[in-house]
Design a protein around this nucleic acid. Structure first.
Length: 117
DNA sequence: TGAATGACTCGAT
DNA sequence: GATCGAGCCATTC
């Protein structure tokens, strides 16, 4: 949205930057990203950032961000409810009929792992 | 200006 | 171990 305030844009850009760093075939969580940005309590804001990500930069892999149990809670915000699952499948990430990542523990990517590089 | 909402998470029962 | 409720923080009406 073009109504993003500069001060808030900084927070959203930080979120976008972390999401863009998620490796291909991996996923992360709203809480993990929020915690990495020092706003552990603001997981919902990460969701808002993902919503805006479709408008500010379509290249942001928002489909790689799920909730803490690996559920595709944001699928309805994509073009179609199946778009999120389709994109994950293309990256080798399997989801069950409940739109939950099967091997979530294996594909989960922690932003804090960047600090170990 | 104030209240409600939301792609969440954690703690208590 | 599972379920319920409250907290958080920016955006929108």
């Amino acid at each position: 949205m073009n109504s993003i305030d500069p001060k808030n844009q900084d927070f959203f850009e930080r979120v976008f930057d972390v999401v863009r760093l998620i490796p291909h075939g991996r996923v992360s969580t709203y809480g993990a990203i929020a915690a990495y940005l020092g706003a552990k309590r603001s997981a919902r804001m990460v969701g808002w950032a993902m919503n805006l990500s479709h408008q500010v930069d379509a290249e942001i892999p928002a489909h790689r961000v799920v909730n803490r149990v690996g559920l595709l809670t944001g699928k309805h915000h994509f073009k179609t409810p199946t778009t999120m699952r389709e994109k994950l499948l293309q990256e080798g990430i399997m989801c069950d009929e409940h739109d939950q990542i099967v091997n979530f523990n294996e594909v989960f990517w922690d932003p804090f792992s960047l600090d170990n590089l």
